[in-house]
Deep mutational scan, measured.
Amino acid sequence: LVRYRTISKIPQITLNFVDLKGDPFLASPTSDREIIAPKIKERTHNVTEKVTQVLSLGADVLPEYKLQAPRIHRWTILHYSPFKAVWDWLILLLVIYTAVFTPYSAAFLLKETEEGPPATECGYACQPLAVVDLIVDIMFIVDILINFRTTYVNANEEVVSHPGRIAVHYFKGWFLIDMVAAIPFDLLIFGSGSEELIGLLKTARLLRLVRVARKLDRYSEYGAAVLFLLMCTFALIAHWLACIWYAIGNMEQPHMDSRIGWLHNLGDQIGKPYNSSGLGGPSIKDKYVTALYFTFSSLTSVGFGNVSPNTNSEKIFSICVMLIGSLMYASIFGNVSAIIQRLYSGTARYHTQMLRVREFIRFHQIPNPLRQRLEEYFQHAWSYTNGIDMNAVLKGFPECLQADICLHLNRSLLQHCKPFRGATKGCLRALAMKFKTTHAPPGDTLVHAGDLLTALYFISRGSIEILRGDVVVAILGKNDIFGEPLNLYARPGKSNGDVRALTYCDLHKIHR
């Protein structure tokens, strides 16, 4: 019993810090008490220290592992850092350059016999395009090294910054494609005289377009951006097909006994025919423009016929181009109408809503002055909100995010209106959640004399007048207030005048 009563005193000691020596009952000389009392004092002292730490809000209350900052290894790049964003855009520009100039170089340097010394005699450094290609190869190699040090988000939505895990993730992902696209074939085969082989191998750079397509997928929600990307894709495919079309004609031209190829026909049409040795002929500019003209006309199913396939190889390629053109029509131009419709969806919704308003007016036989006010209010409210119901949009977000959005939407009023000066951010967040926005066209009466005042109004834009009878008592403008002081009276009061809008007004109100 003594032991039980001794232990039962522990909660009292913990909360009230009572010393055991003052209790005459606990001072009985028993061996059990002498053993338990020192333990009680020690526990009391420890609990006292913990309570003191909690009340003082000291940093040592938290466990040590929670006080440590997340460790980022040296030379690790955050995937959302500004440097990584700028670097990704730079790589994107280099990939676009590669997609345009690599097929052009591979096709127009394929057994090209233009006048001038061969590239091997001039030297590697004197070729501007080769120098640019070398810079692109170096940048792609540097990009691989950067990807080995860039964080990523795993399946659990955690940012991984450990170098080993980053390397394994990159090896399992895009490393092989990036490595093949970054191989400097110019340096590996330079001086061997195989410019045709170098041009063909350099087309491996186009593998990076797969990554670019995935990154550009984030802009699919913007109709104008999608339309622009589709047109660029169409032009890029036409450019690639033009390079292939020229390569076919250029390879067949020296081996044909009869002059029936499209390059021969082009030379005869523009007065620059090929001679018996295969030299001469149109310039590279004429060849490229004509090839691009043929691919565009074939892809769009126009086909004027002034550039036509004559050999079997050219006919087979033309059939493939027609098939590609039909697929592009289905996948690209078939979506253009939907994209344009999405661009004008706001206008369509406006006309639909206006039609419903006019049908309501016609069905209920609203008189002319009231009908005009109804239409003007709808037009003004639509121009202010673009038909978007803010309350319906915010309803799907958590309250903390709703408060931040409301604070942002009402920031101008909260910053410049005098009653809100000096208020804490928590108070402003709470008030912003209570605001209701209303609009009024010129001549609209917001409050009639004798109406119950259940709200306090803040003028965000425009001006109003307060009338008693036919006498203008006051004219209020931006950041002015009218209405009933909230919670100042037990019952809502009545208006002693009319409140009429002089201009288009936007008002925020808080109800009782």
Rank of each mutant, 00 (worst) to 15 (best):
L187F: 11
N368W: 06
P273A: 01
V302D: 01
F304S: 06
T385I: 01
G249E: 01
V160F: 01
H79W: 01
I146A: 04
P441T: 08
G193T: 13
Y350D: 01
A449R: 09
L279F: 14
K425N: 05
Q379E: 07
C417V: 11
F190N: 12
D404P: 02
D88R: 01
A338F: 15
A119K: 15
S308R: 01
T102D: 02
I237F: 05
Q253I: 15
L394F: 13
M256G: 14
T98Q: 01
H162D: 12
T438S: 11
S331G: 08
Y219E: 04
L414H: 01
A125C: 01
K287L: 03
D88Y: 01
A432D: 03
N312T: 01
A99Y: 01
C417W: 09
I138A: 04
I177R: 01
R342P: 04
I324D: 02
R214T: 04
V357R: 01
S297T: 11
P273Y: 01
E157S: 11
A225Q: 06
V95C: 03
K215M: 04
V336L: 04
Y104L: 01
V160S: 01
G164P: 09
R429T: 03
I284Q: 03
L134R: 07
H380C: 10
F108P: 01
P442Q: 14
F108Y: 01
W89A: 03
E252C: 01
Q68K: 15
K272R: 03
S297G: 04
L201C: 04
T445L: 12
R205Y: 04
G278V: 01
N410S: 09
W245V: 01
M322P: 01
F175G: 05
Q365F: 01
A106N: 03
E195A: 15
S313G: 04
I324V: 08
T120D: 01
L446G: 02
P128E: 03
L266H: 01
I198W: 11
L263I: 05
I244Q: 01
A423T: 03
H408F: 04
N410I: 04
V336N: 03
G281N: 01
A204Q: 01
I284C: 01
L188P: 08
F378P: 06
P309G: 01
G278C: 01
Q379D: 15
K395F: 04
L145M: 15
V393T: 05
I260L: 10
N368I: 05
Y124A: 05
D444A: 09
I138Y: 04
K395L: 12
Q379R: 10
I96Q: 01
E252A: 01
I237H: 01
S301H: 15
T203D: 01
L92R: 02
W87M: 01
Y65W: 03
I332H: 03
Y104C: 01
G280H: 01
G173V: 01
L263Q: 01
L374P: 03
Y97V: 01
L227R: 01
I189L: 11
G199F: 01
S297P: 01
L229P: 11
S105Q: 15
A155H: 13
A247H: 01
T150L: 02
H169C: 04
L216P: 01
N306T: 01
R259P: 15
A106C: 01
L394N: 03
D143I: 01
R356C: 13
Q341C: 05
N312W: 01
I77R: 01
A247I: 09
K66H: 05
E158D: 09
H439E: 05
L266T: 01
F294A: 01
